[in-house]
Write a protein that binds this DNA or RNA. Sequence first.
DNA 1: GAGTCGTGGCA
DNA 2: TTGCCAAGACT
Length: 354
Amino acid sequence: MTPEARAADLLTWYDRHRRALPWRAVAGERPDPYRVWASEIMLQQTTVTAVKPYYERFMARFPTVQALAEAPSEEVMQAWAGLGYYSRARNLHACAQAVMENHLGRFPDTEEGLRALPGIGAYTAGAVAAIAFDRPAAAVDGNVERVMTRLFAIADELPGARSLIREKVLALLPHDRPGDFAQALMDLGATICTPRSPACGLCPWREPCQARIAGMQESFPRKAPKKAGVTRYGAAFVLARADGAILLRTRPAKGLLGGMAEVPTSEWRADYELDGAAQDAPLPLSWTQVVEPVRHVFTHFPLELTVFTGSVPERTQAPAGMRFTKLANLAGEPLPSLMLKVVERAGLYSSKTR
DNA sequence: GAGTCGTGGCA
DNA sequence: TTGCCAAGACT
């Protein structure tokens, strides 16, 4: 079977089974590059289910690349709060500004041009070029890696196998409908060629699939085992002022939770000693330890924060570099999920699902 | 190439 | 409950 015929089988399947997604143009209509790009950034390492509500709110709030570029960064971070990987939001904002300043408000329509923008790597450049501009580009994400390693029974471990996978995708690219081909490959991976219990019986590529023929579909792709991180510990201080405000500060722009809001905390270390926690408090006063600590799991380490609560009179001024925010205005702060958990554990706030 | 960087859902 | 991981980029 020729590569063209193989691609045609996938496109036929796609025409029947394509998912309707908020950022996806209806068949036959030209997608908005801004919306395609924004959705691709949000979808990096993030499930469709998690992205949907964020995407809708984000588009309502920042309808155009110009609106996004002109927005204050705190507002962008607030809109992203809870989605994770916050460098994406910082790069997203920087990218919008670069598009306005260097590209007259239009996204570049080539992989190379897109790849040069902040936050756009090999995958996203290919995806936007293909989906938004119908360029014959390979968009190799986790779905595509899974589909291709199975189709060709590629036993090399990831990420080493990426270049080979990319070659395989390029060899299959149809000269018409490359955008649909990219989306079809991802839909196939997301709905049929799933990590566990793939629905091979429904797959348009079940016959040529080398992994399925060997009965080994679930053993692809092969990945090196990742090592577990060491748990870190620390203290978090929830200070309530008599007027119903709590003490917050902004984290440094780069690094973990960069640019996001937090309650004051100690350092987070594997050997943190709770006995001396009072010395790490933002103010010297009578702190009350909450019995059950907040547990949170980051990608590379688990964290256990012991929460301390305290209260101060209404006239109290915030220490340098910190601020008091009314609980009623907490939703306007760029609080990551971890910090929402901390404030909830202190008994001061109850957040609905974001 | 390997480490950093979030979160929530699910088996 | 614990472990795994989802449309990756950057250093």
